[in-house]
């Protein structure tokens, strides 16, 4: 395995003799339909290999790997949130991101954020309840709520202090302001990364502190909006092993906590998510997908809204039973 001398399993002696100093593309010998499939596969492979990346190995958890100075990457995210208390609930969030390596240890990015949702009898006591990103919308308890919106613009800076490849452990600081209609958030992270087994196994840990303001309908008068404080305090861990060339797989675990304040008082929710992740990284193209299920470990807190805790699952705000995130990126 790693560190052993390489056996040329994909080359014959004849191929070696005929190899040129330029790039060599090989294709298996086959006939008929299989041959046509192979030709198309080779064409797609050319795109994939012409395409590779400083990619996100996890869908939710960040690592300390950054773009080199002067390099760019575009990423497209899709997050599907599914099912609350009952009834119907789906939300699809999209993010389109451009990243740029500002320096060897500093990366900047800008995001465009947008979302679509449908909800019906999804909330406490079977009432239709718009999800958090649509919290400034009004919906009657028996309405079928269906909406889409541009949710805002985000900026991002990641500064790497230590590299897991040269310093033994990776450490980076992250900040991401987001501004949208009736919403402002400043998400901050401390990112830790440790690699094992010749860097084939990656473990990343994130601590997040994200205070936000939302202008939401007043409890007393839903036609009046009030700015409210909320803070998300999250812990995340991702573990992924590169089991063959280009492919890694593992799991991600998140604990997301919400407070109705900026100072860790008035805790409202704490949810736990766990699920598998898979990642493909090519020369310029990558994709990552993670599916997370909420674990039944939630409990009541001082500001928990009645009816949002069901069978030890918290289903308030941006908590749901299942979420799935897909990211794809292209480096240039």
């Amino acid at each position: 395995m790693v560190g052993m001398n390489y056996l040329f399993k994909s080359q014959t002696a004849g191929q070696q003799r005929n190899a040129t100093f330029e790039a060599v593309r090989r294709m298996p010998v086959c006939t008929g339909h299989a041959a046509r499939a192979a030709v198309l596969a080779a064409m797609l492979a050319t795109v994939a290999s012409a395409a590779s990346a400083e990619e996100s190995i996890f869908a939710f958890v960040y690592t300390t790997d950054l773009l080199p100075q002067g390099k760019s990457e575009v990423e497209q995210w899709m997050t599907w949130r599914h099912q609350k208390n009952g009834g119907t609930y789906d939300q699809i969030e999209g993010r389109t991101e451009y990243e740029y390596g500002l320096a060897s240890n500093l990366q900047g990015a800008i995001y465009l954020n947008y979302a679509w949702t449908q909800a019906y009898h999804n909330g406490p006591f079977n009432a239709t309840t718009p999800p958090e990103q649509f919290a400034d919308y009004n919906a009657g308890p028996d309405d079928f709520f269906n909406a889409k919106r541009f949710t805002g613009v985000s900026g991002e800076l990641i500064y790497r202090i230590l590299s897991p490849y040269t310093d033994g452990i990776g450490l980076a600081l992250y900040t991401e302001p987001t501004i949208g209609k009736n919403f402002f958030e400043l998400e901050n992270k401390v990112i830790l990364q440790k690699n094992f087994f010749d860097d084939l196994l990656t473990i990343a840990v994130n601590f997040t502190y994200a205070p936000e303001y939302r202008n939401v309908p007043s409890d007393d008068n839903p036609t009046v909006l009030n700015w409210q404080e909320e803070t998300d305090v999250n812990f995340g861990i991702g573990v992924s092993y590169r089991f063959i060339e280009n492919w890694s797989a593992g799991f991600e675990f998140l604990n997301e906590r919400e407070y109705n304040s900026f100072d860790f008082s008035h805790m409202s929710n704490s949810g736990y998510y766990l699920g598998p992740t898979i990642h493909f990284g090519g020369e310029r193209f990558f994709f990552t997908a993670t599916a997370l299920w909420q674990m039944p470990w939630a409990s009541v807190h001082t500001d928990t809204v009645p009816g949002t805790l069901v069978n030890h699952l918290v289903l308030d705000n941006d908590f749901e039973r299942f979420r799935f995130r897909f990211k794809a990126g292209y480096t240039f």
């Binding site: 100093f21 090989r26 064409m43």
Partner: peptide
């Protein structure tokens, strides 16, 4: 197949 064949794309020296 497309993704897996991309793993055998470039050789500079035999």
């Amino acid at each position: 197949a497309a993704i897996s064949t991309s793993a055998y794309a470039t050789t500079y020296f035999s």
